[in-house]
Amino acid sequence: MTTNATECLLQLCDEQFQLEDYQSGVPRWCSGCGDNAILAAVQRLCRDEALRPEKTVFVSGIGCSSRFPHYMKTYGFHGIHGRALPVAEGVKMARPDLTVFVNTGDGDCCSIGAAHWIHAIRYNMNLTVFLHDNQIYGLTKKQASPTSPIGTKSNTTPRGSYLEALNPVSVTLGVQNVSFVAQAVDWIPEVLFDIVKAAYHHRGLSFVRIVQRCPEWLPKSFDPWLHDPNRVQILAHANGLHPSAALSRTYKNQLEHDPSNIHRARELAGDSVNIPVGILYRNPEVPCYEDLIRPDLLRTPELTRSVLDSEMDKYTIWP
């Protein structure tokens, strides 16, 4: 597609952003926390895509991950527990011109916010959702979360948790209207960034589960995968990730997976031995809720007045 001369000139005048333009304060996360890797990847995305800070919003719920908006020099909404998604949907509905990201944790999204999570996937609004999954409630000092592996000893499960962990990727892939599901791990920054970027570019709800280490409360939890790169399965495809040669040297366990194949994506998501990393599913054809309900009408004062009048008329008692 050609770009006209005026547009090119305006692009020349566009501001160039640096990473510092998106950095706000020093993160209070513990050293070694995987949240730092997610923050770095997202800040890099904002810079590379030249997202204007005043046009970008990060919405979160409650938990370690949900401190994320504090560290972004953009608009942010540190919401209430489990309600990051409905708040983000409201923001998007009122201001479709904004780029809206959601940061939520395994407790925030998969426990108290599970109902909102399911329906947000079904509504498929144009949001980019990062599920920071460290498999534990970290902010409140170690309680088992829905994604804690069976047998996890915590303050609420001193004898080890009794239930099988919930798999957020499988659940998401099972909901109607799902349009983008990816899985990343915080310790492979190159792939994390590629997935974050692909999620941002997808129009619809992009759900990215980021497997994230908690060095404070579950320091050994991911050691088997961290120390054995072959247990991390990179999903490559012409329409998905393109791992670099350097990455391929370390992560040799690679699988060609077409992100348009939802049945294969569901099979891969259920793998309990390896962690599949990459774009599991992508369907750009799923309509966004805001496109379906928004009429092709400009909200002029006349329109607002006529709608209000018609509403008021419903309660008018005619003589």
Binding site: P27, S31, G32, C33, G34, N36, A37, L39, A40, D186, W187, I188, P189, E190, P215, A246, L247, T250
Partner: peptide
Amino acid sequence: TQRCSTCNECTN
């Protein structure tokens, strides 16, 4: 550098 996950351990 490409493998660094920005965990702040070394910079701390």
